[in-house]
Amino acid sequence: MLEETLTDQEAYFLERVDRGDRIEADDWMPEDYRQQLVRLIAMHAVSEIMGALPEKEWVPRAPTLYRKLAITAKVQDEVGHGQLLIRVAEDLMRPWGKNREDIMDDLFTGRLKYHNVFHMATPTWADAGVIGWLVDGAAVITQGMSLSCSYAPYARALQRIVEEEGFHIQHGESICMALAEGTPMQRAMLQDALNRWWPALLMFFGPPEKNQLSTHQLRNIRYRIRSKTNEELRQRFFSKYVHRIWSLGLTIPDPTLYQDPVTKEWTYAQPDWEEFRQIVNNRGPRSEARLGLRSTTYQEGEWVRRTIALSPTAG
């Protein structure tokens, strides 16, 4: 939307956004705003749903009954977050005559991407710990920013989500702490998991902008859908977690990682951004397997959804 060619309605909308008004689903909004929101929220929704799968693999193999209960609760939370977000996206898609079936179709056909981290393998129990501690830690940095989003229903959903993520992070910290204080073999398992996840964690925030914001980012910042750049969020992640990782005697697999004592800025080795593009385009290590599982489950549940929809109390 070019600011010099605004209609009165558009100008008034931007004025509301500028003064910090929160927009509700039934308020007038530019089509462009609606599209940016659907793009962001549908992606977030399917990431929560796909995000349940890497850890779900550890539900039957959790080392104790307590850990099994806790990781089951966590997996259930992730699916619940998906439910909340799909509702928010659906209300936005209503004027287009679309609903959650379209979101799932877009996921299965690859039109809708999900976060890079959920395409990765989780071969050990330490991976489950690292996901909780650092992947959810990274997610909360992004979602914490989005709490100030100008779209009220998304901000309200995030309030509930971020509250539960607090539990997820400590659940992950607890697993990692136990391994860090454990046998040499357990420590080695944790170090291996960190080595595996480090590049994916850096990729999670998206490519650095290098003073060149994409059109989508510029729009989202203009609409107050987001307020920080990928690089700002990644820097915040370093500041929050690098010292904690070091405090457990772990090695971060990047010998160039360094914080400038004056500017506080972190320099680091860039992950392979071409690999990132491959991963988010469903060519990651576990993309096919997890999408296959999700798609099969969706098809197998079809008769249940249909039966419920046709039950006498429906409508």
């Binding site: 439910q83 909340l84 509702r87 659906e90």
Partner: peptide
Amino acid sequence: VFNVLASSPDMAMALAEENFFR
């Protein structure tokens, strides 16, 4: 609290409990 998509009030209550009161 929030909202749910459901086929009946009973289903809506069950989903609300699962989604918001874990």
